[in-house]
Amino acid sequence: MTPTKTTDLKAGPSSTDEFIKGLWRENPVFVQVLGMCPVLAVSNSAINALAMGLATAFVLIMSNILVSSLRNFIPKQVRIASYILIIATFVTMVDYAIQAISVDLHKNLGAFISLIVVNCLILSRAEAFASKNTIGKSALDALGMGLGFVFALFCLGAVREILGNGSIFGFMIFPESFQEWIIMILPAGGFFTLALWLFLFNNYKLKKAKA
């Protein structure tokens, strides 16, 4: 009982804060730069980005809850291997669920759903947060981080789809005469768009630090 109490006392941030921090201050993509591979690979349209973000968030939340509830039973030496097993189980579930919901979407995302297993974001939350905190807090942390990840992926996906295809969620928003920036949906566009968002974030942070 005592350790839980001390962590509660010591952990100044309230539960809302655990949730909020993932959205903005410690945003997994823009601030921590974690889990880059899926971010760049599937953000070529808003719908792909959103689906990938939600799938990752689901795996993150479930694995954080399970890791947190098992944290007193998993021996220290094999903890990383156990986390990976837990994550792989949920990813397999998500993989089959997406295949059942929409075959097209599954085809678009391809192997990247399976590759959620090696998303460093999930493993880092399991190791850095869920293995040390209560179930409730871990769930909130995962929810915040997951939503932050979805938000970041959506930012990228929307920019790339609007510029590269002239549409958002498949609806055309520009007149016929709009010349698409094909480069934006190609791999190079992913690097450029992410660089742009990180640049905006850095700019904002530097200005705030000066003020």
Binding site: L186, A188, G189, F191, A195, L198
Partner: peptide
């Protein structure tokens, strides 16, 4: 990170 990503984009 930003400049690294820009370089990666050009390499790509």
């Amino acid at each position: 990170t930003v400049i690294t990503l820009l370089v990666a984009g050009i390499l790509s």
